[in-house]
Amino acid sequence: MKKARIICHRGDSIRAPENTFASLEGAVALGAEVVEFDIHTSRDGVLYVIHDEAVDRTTNGTGLVAEMTSSELDALDAGSWFAPEFAGQRIPRLDAFLDACVGRIVPYAEIKAADPGDVRDMLARRGLLRDAWTFSFDPAIRAETRARVPDFRRSVLYKHVGSVARAVELEAAILEFHPENLTEAVAAEARAVGLVTQIFYAGNDPVVFEAAVRSGIEQMNIDEVDLFRQVEQQINSVSG
C-alpha cells in the first residue's frame, strides 16, 4: 500500500504549542507534507494563525482576537502555557507563517474568521496556491470561498455533505472523514471520482489508524504522527 500523506494538525502540537512557529518547525522536522492551521482576523484587519476566537487558552492574554489590535496580539506570549522552554513564542501573523512554509511544507488553511479572498491571495503571491487548500466550519465562509475564489482548492467534511455525489457537486477537491463515518466502500467511491480521501483524528487509538490504512485513506490529518507511521508500517509489511 502507498504511504499516506501526513497533515500535522495545528503543527506538531504534541511537542510544541499549537499554531506557532515552533509547531510549524516541528511538523517540518517530522517529515510531514502538510501543516494544518487556523486563521482569525484582528480588529485592524491583520490575519493571525490561532485556533480559538479568544486568546485566553493559548496565550498569556485575555480577550477576543477580533477585538484586539495587531500590536496587542503581537505582544502576547503564545508558548509559556505549553512549557517554559517555549516562552516568547508569538501568535504568528499569517504572512510570516506562510513565508516559513515556502519550499518546505504545504499549507492547509482552516478559516475561522477571515476573508477567503485575502487568504487565497497571500498563498498565490508565494506560489503556494496550487497545492494548498482550505476549509471552514462557517457555512457562509464556505459559500463565499466557492463563489468568489473558485481556484482556491477546498475540502468538505463527509458529515456535512453526506455523500460522495454531494462533494462532487460542491466541486470539492478533498473529502474528509471522521472515524465514525469512514467505510472502505465510501472511501473507494470517493477515490474513483477523483476526490482525495482524508481523515481527521486527534486521538491515539491504533485501531482507528489501522482502519484508515485498510480503507486506503490518502491523507491523515492527525496529532500522533509517530504512532500512525508505526501502525501503517506494520500493516504494509504484512500486506506487502
Rank of each mutant, 00 (worst) to 15 (best):
K2A: 08
K2T: 13
A4E: 07
A4V: 03
I6M: 09
C8W: 12
H9L: 12
G11I: 03
D12M: 14
E25G: 12
G26R: 15
A27H: 10
L30G: 06
A32H: 14
A32P: 15
V34G: 08
F37Q: 07
F37W: 12
R43V: 08
T58C: 15
S71N: 11
A75Q: 11
F82Q: 05
G88Q: 14
I91S: 10
F97A: 07
V102D: 02
R104N: 10
K112N: 02
K112Y: 02
M122Y: 00
R125F: 01
R130Q: 09
D131G: 03
W133Q: 02
W133I: 00
F135R: 05
E144W: 04
A147G: 03
V156K: 05
V161P: 00
R166H: 05
V168L: 10
L175G: 11
L175Q: 08
E176Y: 09
H178F: 09
N181T: 09
A187Q: 03
A188D: 07
E189T: 13
A190F: 03
A192M: 13
V193R: 03
V196Q: 15
N204I: 12
D205Q: 02
D205H: 03
V208S: 05
A211T: 07
I217L: 13
Q219Y: 15
M220G: 08
N221L: 10
L227T: 15
F228A: 05
Q230E: 09
V231T: 07
V231Y: 14
